[in-house]
Write a protein that binds this DNA or RNA. Structure first.
Lengths: 396, 396
DNA sequence: CTGAAAGCGCTAACAC
DNA sequence: GTGTTAGCGCTTTCAG
């Protein structure tokens, strides 16, 4: 059963071209992720019966109109809570009963064509695989779903071309609005959509030269608080591992770091700043090594994000430098699972779920479900989370 | 700027009720996640200009028909690659040029109403926040998106009632098909949808008494391999922390454990099995404690999932028992970030991205974009990942 | 090869 | 109160 044959096992059905092709796909899969060798074969069992691909016709307003002997529009009215009051109670009840009995479900896409409201919103994120986005999505969903909105989520991979294509994809599907998480710095496609009157809210980043409402975290406050914390522990020489400068967070946090250092009178040379190309452990490690080799002395590293911090700690460990005893390291975001990793990282918690919920509420306002005037800028509070990766400065 | 006022700061705009309400929401947010105290106020800056909520009319086929002096149907034909060949080349070119110039984008909603194909699929997952699902989603997207499909993702939270409502939500939106990740064991709503002719594929679990194609991982093989690995290390007394028995994975893995233990001649008492209510570290810890207190001797714990294993290791550490020196612990799934946690967990890697891609391909086949005969069962291979949490049995 | 016309399922003016 | 009518934007016969 689990021998290295590389041949799909079938119970019924004939070997058609499509089967061959399908199986070829599986082989490709196995090959591509070549972590997996041929120890197991992919097993497939065939369904003998040809799938009856006949979509059972849904019951429509017309059906229930015929059933109850009234006009479609009456049915429509009786079924819409907003217009039901204009209908004789008995008739309305009869109609509702029939609808129930026939299992009527409104066809939102037909309704959408008529009303120009699909009750669907688009959500653009860089990559769902990045752990900070799922909570944001749940936050968005938590306010939109109860109101009957569904969301189409797309991953931009932070690629300009892909992103602009996806904006079009969403518009083609007639979304009522778009929540854009981590838009690019200058973002013509989303700006154009907004100009065309499509409600748009951005999260984590502001689109320059636009009046698109945005919600961001108090990056500045987070950095300041973290720096104050380090200073209180006696640290004076503090290095920074900055994030990618083409991403909002990377840029904002670096700026905040420089400013706050100056304000605290700790302004150092730029040799105590290393900039990562990506928010990745590996980059954090490299940057930490660069900092160590620069010769610039420091007793703490403030990192622009948790993953960079994790990498930095790894680099220190490899050189036999203890964190936090010799060098304190801090992160940003408070991503999930952080408390399982030793030493537990001191970091800045950003609101994830709430950020999503807030953006969603803004979008609703834009959609006219409430305010007709909407805040341009919303800054969400952050919170310092002190754990084990920071300690009193050794010579402080 | 960052004082504890609790009052939103505004630049322009008047304090209307809606503003007050919106701000009340923010306060609620802050309150609810009361991890965040009043150290920072939420700042909002108001956009003075009332948003012009006039959706610019999109250009339609009619527009470009008028522009080029031909009939809408001709335009429709000229713009569809499949029917373009039936059009005089010059006319077709003129039409395409006009479409380009006017920035024409087909209205998929309208097309969908006509053709009954929305080029949208529904994807149901328990919870996007669970790290194993995002890669699955990317896998699905990787095959569907290039073909022009968008997906509506919904979180069921594994609640029956919610799940069945969401199936309806998806159907109302006219999705062409549904990929259901971790459906419930007996799942009337999705079964009904499938019976009604809606293409459905399930991932991770089979819906009983149905002909719904499903793709699952080789749970059995994974457990067997892990057990063989432990046996090779000299372990004979092996405990199991099982997952929730109402979830496919929990149930399958427990059954596989029992069977494989028997096959290896290691069959133990049921006192060496503890069952978690949820796949959560906390539960893993509790179960490990139960096992230790049971008095049943063991030198290894095979856990139904990584998170349980992480919890178990935590429990051991608290009691001063070293993993892996004294007791080996193993996981399942190989979730992201596992290699950052010490000791690095020995586990079974399941295909995540590929599983999604495979399910998507099956759905495509069901949609008629290929085969008309589709495998009922597809079992994906798994791979043993040996890291640091397993070691030779101390007295072995 | 192209135009005319019907209609997908629903909503919303406007009559009566 | 309820029926009539006219589309939303597109596809797809059916004529010519």
């Amino acid at each position: 059963m689990r021998e290295c044959t590389g041949v799909a096992q079938m119970r019924t059905g004939s070997i058609t071209q499509s089967i061959a092709r399908t199986f070829a796909n599986f082989l490709t899969v196995v090959k591509k992720h070549n972590a997996i060798d041929c120890k197991y074969s992919v097993r497939t069992v065939w369904n003998g019966k040809r799938c009856a691909r006949m979509l059972k016709k849904r019951t429509t307003l017309k059906d229930i109109a015929r059933e109850t002997g009234v006009h479609v529009s009456t049915v429509s009215r009786a079924l819409d809570p907003a217009t039901r009051k204009a209908i004789t109670p008995e008739v309305a009840e009869k109609i509702q009963a029939a609808a129930e009995r026939l299992g009527y479900r409104p066809n939102r896409i037909a309704a959408g064509l008529r009303t120009n409201r699909t009750m669907t919103v688009g959500v653009m994120i860089p990559d769902i695989t990045n752990v900070i986005f799922p909570p944001i999505l749940r936050g968005i969903e938590s306010v939109l779903e109860p109101l009957g909105y569904a969301s189409i989520i797309v991953n931009t991979d932070s690629e300009k071309e892909r992103e602009s294509r996806l904006v079009d994809v969403l518009r083609d599907r007639g979304v009522d609005g778009i929540i854009h998480t981590a838009a690019l710095r200058s973002d013509p496609s989303i700006a154009r959509a907004a100009e065309d009157g499509l409600p748009v809210v951005t999260l984590n980043r502001r689109v320059e030269n636009s009046r698109i409402p945005y919600v961001i975290n108090d990056e500045d406050g987070g950095i300041r608080d973290m720096l104050a914390h380090l200073r209180d522990l006696g640290h004076r020489r503090i290095a920074h591992i900055a994030g990618p400068q083409d991403l909002s967070t990377g840029q904002l946090r670096l700026a905040a770091f420089r400013e706050a250092m100056a304000d605290l009178g700790l302004g150092g040379s730029d040799r105590s700043v290393a900039t990562a190309m990506r928010f990745h452990e590996h980059q954090g490690r490299q940057c930490a090594e660069m900092l160590l080799e620069s010769g610039e002395p420091f007793t703490a590293i403030l990192c622009a994000n948790d993953r960079l911090a994790l990498g930095a700690i790894e680099a220190l460990r490899e050189r036999g430098i203890d964190c936090p005893r010799e060098i304190s390291v801090t992160g940003f975001n408070d991503m999930p699972f952080l408390d399982l990793i030793r030493p537990k990282l001191t970091t800045v918690r950003i609101q994830q779920h709430s950020a999503g919920a807030t953006a969603a509420r803004l979008l609703l306002d834009l959609l006219g479900n409430g305010a007709d005037d909407v805040p341009l800028e919303t800054i969400l509070p952050v919170e310092l989370v002190i754990r084990e990766s920071t300690a009193r400065c050794p010579n402080g």
